[in-house]
Write a protein that binds this DNA or RNA. Structure first.
Ligand SMILES: [Zn+2]
Ligand SMILES: [Zn+2]
Ligand SMILES: [Zn+2]
Ligand SMILES: [Zn+2]
Lengths: 167, 167
DNA sequence: CATAACATGTTATAACATAACACTATTAGT
DNA sequence: ACTAATAGTGTTATGTTATAACATGTTATG
């Protein structure tokens, strides 16, 4: 019995989402990055990234594994988790904590503290930057603490879904 | 084989943590709230809250279950999850997504969007408010989206731990 | 080519969470 | 007080997410 995230259709992430780059651009960017950093963009890593960037929505690790299996790759859990960890280290994938799911970065190649907007009805997710979100981390200096990583997720309902509900 | 969160000592949450209220105060506040709202502060709910407020650190659901078992309560998973859901609904408990753990609220009885500061070394957690965190949600109005709930967690290293590392 | 470092494959298991249903206790009407 | 409805708890089973440990393959380097 599966939980959520199964038959949802995908399109633009929210009406005003800035796709930023298409599939090909994303692949090219990650290729260049790996080349520059002397990292191996192996078939497995490429495939995992392709699966995530394909329709650019959050996928659970086991959904990614299924997709890997369909494409002839091994599909035991560590395969996915290892590659996801690697891609996250280099900023090409983020984890959505509130969904236990992973999503391709909308804005790689510049260091950033991503924030996510998550519709709890259609489960679309948009990655937004500080300015767009209205959240500022700039002054997030807690006394006696060195912040290394921030998790910011805003859950709610997108206009499309709230309109649909009132029809 | 257990994972993290096992033998850590507890004291104040970070050096400058404002406890806000002691154990007895916390219990009194929750009692009053339940009374006012005509909710049942049952022995089970009281015990779960006591376990969490006792040393005021994040606990996994299964740690709470163990504590319940030790105190003569049933300790099958739904027991903990149901009570935790209930306490979270009413703002007395928060979930720390990055730790899959639950913590008693440091500032109940006023609606708030909590932010958490998490030391990845000692796993102490402080609940901070917007001003203290330097994060402002005030203008977090995303176009085409109604934000209902925010998750903000800042992970890093507290001064105590970073000092300990350089000795 | 040796060898070290990196990457992947595999099995097993840990850790976290919920579904479904039974039973009990409390509350609300009559 | 009786009864029905609701809320709370108990129990079993299972679903879901993630990691440990170790084996094998692959790639860079001297
Ligand atoms: Zn990003
Ligand atoms: Zn939506
Ligand atoms: Zn709180
Ligand atoms: Zn610390």
């Amino acid at each position: 019995m599966k939980k959520k995230r199964e038959g949802k259709t995908t399109s633009k992430i929210f009406d005003d989402h800035d796709h930023g780059m298409c599939f090909d651009d994303a692949i090219e960017q990650i290729e260049n990055y790996f080349l520059k950093k002397n990292l191996q963009f192996t078939p497995l890593r490429r495939k995992v990234f392709e699966i995530l960037i394909r329709d650019h929505k959050p996928l659970g690790a086991y959904e990614i594994l299924e997709a890997l299996g369909r494409d002839g790759f091994s599909s035991s859990p560590p395969i996915a988790y290892r590659v996801l960890d690697f891609l996250m280290e280099h900023g090409f994938v983020h984890k959505i904590q509130g969904l236990n799911a992973f999503i391709a970065c909308s804005n790689p190649n510049h260091s950033h503290s991503p924030a996510f907007v998550i519709c709890r009805k259609c489960e679309k997710v948009a990655e937004v930057d500080e300015k767009k979100s209205g959240i500022s981390f700039a002054s997030a200096n807690i006394e006696n603490f060195e912040v290394e990583k921030t998790t910011v997720e805003m859950t709610g309902v997108c206009t499309t879904c709230s309109r649909a509900a009132t029809i």
